[in-house]
Design a protein around this nucleic acid. Structure first.
Length: 272
DNA sequence: CGGACAACCTGGCGGC
DNA sequence: TGCCGCCAGGTTGTCC
């Protein structure tokens, strides 16, 4: 579910409630989601550590503690939020991790599908080290994008989903960005003209920035940390719009196909 | 290296 | 209402 804009929204939402707090205890009931450490060591090691910083890298939430990094990936159905410790537990039956804070609140990680991942490590690079550039960072320039693309010749949409190539794009924003750039998802990356490459660079950033501004897309599981929905789903150009009229051109009807095992949406009239 | 595909899990939805 | 098959925003590993 959550792609870069959704994860960024989660990070911004929990940061005020988490900054400066000390984690007093950790509880979990689904050990397979816990990586790189066993549950007992995890609880013992995290207890007493104070939150130094809450940030995002790609689709990972990175909580820097005094001695370790608590890193969380929401995968498809993960939710992360801070609530008073006494608040209803039954309201969310998918909570698998709870972190007790020093102000009678809890950080909760809910995950219906149990695909999410929780890491506790002193070496953040062990988790984040192989990720590609952050598309919204100032460091990610058009020249950089051109250079990375020049080394590839694969199908463009799966390449955009490759987190080593560029970090943070998922199925929704890949379709949206390719639409904005008027490029068909099945095109080979080495078939793109310089003009198309430039348009794609701009489109990737525009699609992601809009997602952040709308606080993410709530199609199904994604919620902001305060429990409300994002608004980006109301502004999709192609995702989930098969059979509907294109918003970009006159006469186009959005089609859906399967590409690299992923549902893929595009306008056959204005994407070439 | 690229591509196909299974696997990890569960819930929601459409069809019968 | 009940059951069944299918679909899902992510990532990784295996096989060819």
């Amino acid at each position: 579910m959550p792609e870069l804009p959704e994860v960024e929204t989660v990070v911004r939402g929990i940061r005020p409630a988490l900054g400066g707090r000390t984690i007093q205890a950790a509880w979990l009931d689904w050990a397979p989601s816990l990586m790189m450490i066993d549950p007992n060591s995890f609880a013992a090691r995290i207890a007493g550590q104070r939150v130094q910083e809450v940030s995002r890298r790609a689709k990972y939430i990175v909580i820097r503690l005094e001695a370790d990094y608590l890193i969380i990936h929401l995968k498809m159905t993960g939710r992360l939020y801070v609530v008073p410790a006494a608040s209803e537990h039954e309201a969310d039956r998918w909570v698998h991790f709870r972190f007790t804070l020093d102000n009678d609140h809890e950080l909760r990680f809910s995950d219906a599908r149990k695909f999410g991942r929780v890491y506790l490590t002193a070496d953040a690079d062990a988790v984040l080290g192989n990720l590609g550039p952050e598309p919204l960072s100032d460091d990610f320039t058009l020249a950089d994008f051109r250079a990375r693309l020049a080394k590839r010749k694969t199908v463009i949409k799966p390449l955009l989903l490759n987190q080593q190539f560029i970090a943070g794009i998922g199925n929704i924003y890949a379709d949206e960005a390719l639409h904005l750039a008027h490029i068909r998802p099945e095109r080979r990356s080495n078939s793109l003209s310089p003009t198309e490459i430039d348009a794609l660079y701009t489109a990737i950033r525009a699609a992601l920035e809009k997602g952040v501004a709308r606080q993410g897309a709530s199609i199904n599981w994604y919620r902001r940390p305060d429990g409300t929905r994002g608004a980006m789903q109301d502004e999709f150009m192609v995702y989930g719009r098969a059979g509907e009229a294109c918003h970009t051109c006159a006469g186009g009807i959005i089609e859906k196909m399967i590409l690299a095992q992923r549902g893929t949406h595009y306008c056959p009239n204005c994407q070439h």
